[in-house]
Design a protein around this nucleic acid. Structure first.
Length: 770
DNA sequence: TGGAGTCGCATTTTT
DNA sequence: TGCGACTCCA
C-alpha cells in the first residue's frame, strides 16, 4: 500500500472503505443519513485518479443541487489539487446543458439557445393556448405542470399515453406539442428539455452518444433516490447495464421529491437493472445522538417498501426528544423562541447551530413574528431570491436577447420595459403578424411598416426598439466578457437610469439590485479567468486521439456561460446566515445538520399534510410514505437536541382547525420523549370556549399524548366570549357565532351560516369548532 | 400606464 | 389570512 492509498483510506469504516475500493462495475451505496456519503464519493474519485491512475476527465460526477456540486468540488480540490480541474463535477442540468450546447445543431437549436424558467414557460403555455383558441379550457398552470411531468417521464408529446376519451389529456398533448414548437422557434429550452432533448438525441444518434461513452469511463451519482425517469434514462445511456462503472449513492428513506417526478423505484430496482451490482450499506451514523436515531428509525420502519437498514452510532444516547404541546400556533412559536433562547444561554448551542423546520411555508409567518419579538436573530432559508426579482429578470431578458434575439418570451417581457410607449394593442398586432408569417418577433420588428393596422407613432417606436436590440446583439457578438455586456446593456436600455429617476425608495433599491447584477457579472468574469489559468497550468495528460477530453464548457462563450449560471445556479451563495437560527421547510432541510432542531406542526393535516390523509388507504399510500420519509429527514438533521412541537388548534388559511396529534408521534416510543406513561403533561386549554371532550382511550403502544386531546372536538359548551368563532353544524354546515345565550353545553347560540341557511339558533352541544 | 380594487386560491419547489 | 393575478378606471 503506497502513501496515497493509505491516506485516502484513512479513517474510513469498513463499508465506506469497501465502496472506495470497489473494483469496477455497478455499485449501489445505500447511505443512511449522516453516514458520510460525500466522503465516500470524494475519496473514491480521488482513489481512482491517484491509485488507479484514471484520467480525471474520464470521471463524471453528478449531483442534484449546485450546492452539493460545489461542496464536492471543493473537497476534491483538497484531495487532488490541480487534477480536480479536469473532473466534471456538476448537476444533472448543467452537465446536460453543456453537452447539449456542444451538440445543439443535432436537436434543432443553435449554440446560443437560452434556458427558460418557470415564468417564461408559463408565458409560452399561455401564448400557445391563446393561439389555439383554447384559453378557457384549462388552467395554464395545470397544463404546464402536466407538461413538466411528461418531460420528467422522458416523454415527448407523441409519446404521451392518452386514453381515447380523455379530453383533458388530449388537450395537454396538443398544447405540449405547440409549446415545444414555440420553444424551438425561440431557440429556447426549458429545464426538462435539457435532459429530455439529450436523451432523445442519444437515442436517435448512437454515434453521438458513443463519443461520450468513450470519454466517461466512470459515472458517479449523488442523491440517487431523487432521480426521475429522464435522469435515469440518461445515466443508463452513458453508463449502460449490466457492467458499466456506475456508482450511485443514495438513501431510499430520504426520497422526498416524488411530486417532482422522482421515483424511489429507481433506487429500489437498481440491483435488478444492473444485475450483479454490488450493494454497500453505510449504516454507521456520525451525526446524531442515539435517542434521535432511534426515534427516526421507529418512524421510518413503518414504510413497507424500503431497503432495510438501521442506523447505529457510537455516540451517547444523549438527551431525550422533547415534546412541546401548545394551545395554538402562536404559543408554539413563542415556545420555540423561548427554548431557543434557553438553549443559547444554558446549552452552549449557538444560534447558527439551531434550526426550525415546518411542513408548509405558511407556518413561517407566526414563527418569524415570535422570533423577532424575542429578539432571536434568524434567516429564512428559501429558494432563489436575487435572480427572481423583477428588475433582475428584466436585465436577464435583455442579456438573453443579446445572444439570442429570437427569444420571444424575453422580448415580450421587456418590449415596454422601461416604458417606451408600446402598449398592449400594438404588441398584440405584432404578435399576430409574427404568427401569420411564422417568424420570430424580432424578425418581424425589422420591418414594422409591414405590420397591419399600426399607426405611424407605433411603427416609429418599434423601429427604435428593434434598433436597440440589434445594436445590443451586435455588441454581444464582439464582446469577450460578461461584465462589459451587462454594462453596455444597462447603459443602452437606461434601466438603471429610469429607476433612479423615479426616485422612490423602492425604485432606488431596484436600481441597487441592477448594480449588484453588474457586480455579479464582474465576479463571474474573474472566476472564469482564474479557472482558465488553473486549467492551463494543470498537467496535460495524454489523450487518445479518438476521445474528446476537452472541458464540457470549453466553447461556451462568456456571456452565455453567465446566463447559464443565472438560470441553473441561481443565487450563488444563499448560505445560512452567520449567527442566526435557520428557518426552513423540511424539504429545504435535506442535506443539512444542526445541533438543535425544532420540528413544528406535528399534527395530522399539517404534517402529515392533509393531502396525504385523503384517499382510500392513506396509511399505505405512496403519499403517506413520502410524508414519513420527510419526517425521517427532519429528525435526522438533529445532532443533539430534537424538539417536536404541535398545537392543539391552529389557524391556517384563515380557518381555525383542531388537528389531532400527528400519527408520526404515535410511532415514537414514549420513553424517547422521556415520558413515563403516567406522566403526561396536560396540554394547555384551547381558547376560548371549546374545552375538548376527553376521549375514552384504548390502551395501545403509542405515547399517550393523544389522551388529553380531542380528536373531533365536539364542543363542551360555551365559556367566555365566543362571538365570531367559526363553528360547524352537522346539518347547516359552517358558520360564525353571532351571539350566545347562557353557558355550558346547553347554551343557545345564534349562528350565521351564510347562504340559504342564514341565521340559526342552535344548542351549543350540537356544534363543533369549524 | 399604473394604481386601486377584486377575486380566487393556498404543499413541498433540487434545476 | 395573505398573496398574486387580473380588471377597471383616472
Amino acid at each position: 500500500m503506497n502513501a496515497h492509498e493509505s491516506a485516502l483510506l484513512e479513517d474510513l469504516n469498513d463499508p465506506q472503505r469497501e465502496a472506495v475500493l470497489h473494483h469496477g462495475g455497478p455499485l449501489l451505496v445505500l447511505s443512511g443519513a449522516g453516514s458520510g456519503k460525500t466522503r465516500v464519493i470524494t475519496r473514491r474519485v480521488a482513489y481512482l485518479v491517484k491509485v488507479h491512475e484514471v484520467f480525471p476527465w474520464r470521471i463524471l460526477a453528478v449531483t442534484f443541487t449546485n450546492k452539493a456540486a460545489r461542496e464536492m468540488r471543493e473537497r476534491l480540490v483538497q484531495l487532488l489539487g490541480r487534477q480536480a480541474n479536469d473532473l466534471v463535477v456538476s448537476t444533472f442540468h448543467s452537465s446536460a446543458a453543456m453537452i447539449l450546447r456542444r451538440e445543439a445543431e443535432h436537436v434543432g437549436l443553435t449554440r446560443s439557445f437560452v434556458i427558460y424558467d418557470d415564468g417564461d414557460q408559463l408565458n409560452v403555455v399561455k401564448r400557445a393556448m391563446r393561439e389555439a383558441g383554447l384559453e378557457q379550457s384549462m388552467q395554464p398552470r395545470e397544463i404546464l405542470s402536466r407538461i413538466d411531468q411528461e418531460k420528467n417521464q422522458a416523454r415527448l408529446p407523441e409519446d404521451m399515453e392518452v386514453e381515447p376519451g380523455d379530453e383533458r389529456g388530449l388537450l395537454v398533448q396538443r398544447i405540449y406539442h405547440a409549446y415545444q414548437e414555440r420553444l424551438r422557434a425561440a431557440n429556447a429550452v426549458d429545464f426538462g428539455d435539457l435532459l429530455l432533448l439529450l436523451v432523445t438525441l442519444f437515442r436517435k444518434r448512437p454515434e453521438v452518444l458513443e463519443n461520450y461513452r468513450r470519454r466517461f469511463h466512470h459515472v458517479l451519482v449523488d442523491e440517487f433516490q431523487d432521480t426521475n425517469p429522464v435522469q435515469y434514462a440518461l445515466l443508463k445511456q452513458l453508463a449502460p447495464p449490466p457492467s458499466a462503472n456506475l456508482v450511485v449513492v443514495g438513501d431510499d428513506d430520504q426520497s422526498i421529491y416524488r411530486w417532482r417526478g422522482a421515483d424511489v423505484d429507481n433506487i429500489l430496482n437498481f440491483p435488478r437493472e444492473y444485475p450483479g451490482a454490488k450493494v454497500v450499506k453505510l449504516e454507521q451514523n456520525y451525526r446524531s445522538d442515539r435517542n434521535i436515531l432511534d426515534a427516526a428509525y421507529e418512524v421510518i420502519r413503518k414504510n413497507t417498501r424500503r431497503m432495510e437498514k438501521k442506523l447505529w452510532s457510537d455516540r451517547p444516547a444523549g438527551q431525550t426528544l422533547q415534546l412541546m404541546l401548545n394551545r395554538d400556533e402562536r404559543m408554539e412559536a413563542q415556545e420555540v423562541a423561548r427554548q431557543i433562547l434557553a438553549l443559547q444561554r444554558e446549552g452552549f448551542i449557538k444560534f447558527s447551530s439551531m434550526a426550525v423546520f415546518y411542513r408548509v411555508n405558511a407556518q413561517s409567518r407566526v414563527l418569524e413574528e415570535a422570533l423577532r419579538l424575542a429578539r432571536v436573530p434568524y434567516t429564512l432559508v428559501s429558494g432563489r431570491s436575487f435572480y427572481d426579482r423583477a428588475e433582475v429578470r428584466d436585465a436577464s431578458a435583455y442579456l438573453r436577447l443579446m445572444v439570442n434575439p429570437r427569444s420571444d418570451a424575453d422580448l415580450l417581457r421587456i418590449i415596454n420595459t422601461p416604458a417606451r410607449g408600446i402598449g398592449d394593442t400594438t404588441v398584440e398586432r405584432v404578435v399576430d403578424h409574427a404568427n401569420t408569417r411564422n417568424q420570430s418577433l424580432y424578425e418581424v420588428l425589422a420591418e414594422p411598416g409591414l405590420i397591419p393596422a399600426l399607426n405611424t407613432t407605433a411603427v416609429k417606436r418599434l423601429r427604435t426598439f428593434h434598433g436597440l436590440l440589434e445594436s445590443l446583439h451586435r455588441y454581444a457578438q464582439g464582446t469577450t466578457d460578461a461584465a462589459s455586456a451587462v454594462d453596455e446593456m444597462l447603459r443602452e436600455t437606461k434601466l438603471v437610469e429610469t429607476l433612479v429617476a423615479e426616485g422612490s425608495d423602492e425604485s432606488t433599491t431596484r436600481a441597487e439590485n441592477l448594480r449588484e447584477f453588474l457586480g455579479a457579472a464582474q465576479e463571474f468574469d474573474l472566476n472564469r479567468a482564474a479557472a482558465a489559468v488553473a486549467a492551463a497550468s494543470g498537467p496535460r495528460v495524454e489523450v487518445p486521439p479518438e476521445v474528446d477530453a476537452a472541458p464540457l464548457s470549453a466553447d461556451t462563450p462568456p456571456l452565455q456561460a453567465f446566463l447559464e449560471q443565472i438560470s441553473l445556479v441561481g443565487d450563488a451563495d444563499a448560505e445560512v446566515g452567520e449567527g442566526r437560527v435557520a428557518l426552513m421547510t423540511l424539504h429545504a432541510a435535506k442535506g443539512l445538520e444542526f445541533d438543535a432542531v425544532f420540528l413544528t406542526g406535528l399534527e395530522d393535516g399539517v404534517f402529515p399534510h392533509s393531502r396525504a390523509l385523503k384517499g382510500e388507504d392513506p396509511d399505505n399510500g405512496e403519499e403517506m410514505a413520502e410524508e414519513r420519509r420527510l419526517c425521517y429527514v427532519g429528525f435526522t438533521r438533529a445532532r443533539k437536541r430534537l424538539f417536536v412541537s404541535l398545537a392543539q388548534c391552529r389557524s391556517l388559511f384563515g380557518e381555525l382547525r383542531y388537528n389531532p396529534p400527528s400519527r408520526f408521534l404515535r410511532d415514537v416510543p414514549p420513553k424517547l420523549f422521556g415520558i413515563s406513561e403516567q406522566d403526561i403533561p396536560e396540554p394547555p386549554r384551547p381558547a376560548p370556549m371549546a374545552a375538548p371532550r376527553k376521549r375514552t382511550w384504548d390502551e395501545d403502544d403509542g405515547p399517550r399524548i393523544d389522551r388529553s386531546y380531542s380528536q373531533t372536538s365536539d364542543m363542551d359548551g360555551v365559556s367566555g366570549d365566543v362571538r365570531g368563532m367559526r363553528v360547524r353544524h352537522e346539518q347547516f354546515g359552517v358558520g360564525r357565532i353571532v351571539a350566545a345565550d347562557g353557558t355550558g353545553p346547553n347554551a343557545k347560540v345564534t349562528v350565521e351560516f351564510g347562504g340559504a341557511v342564514g341565521l340559526k339558533r342552535v344548542i351549543a352541544r350540537f356544534l363543533m369548532p369549524g
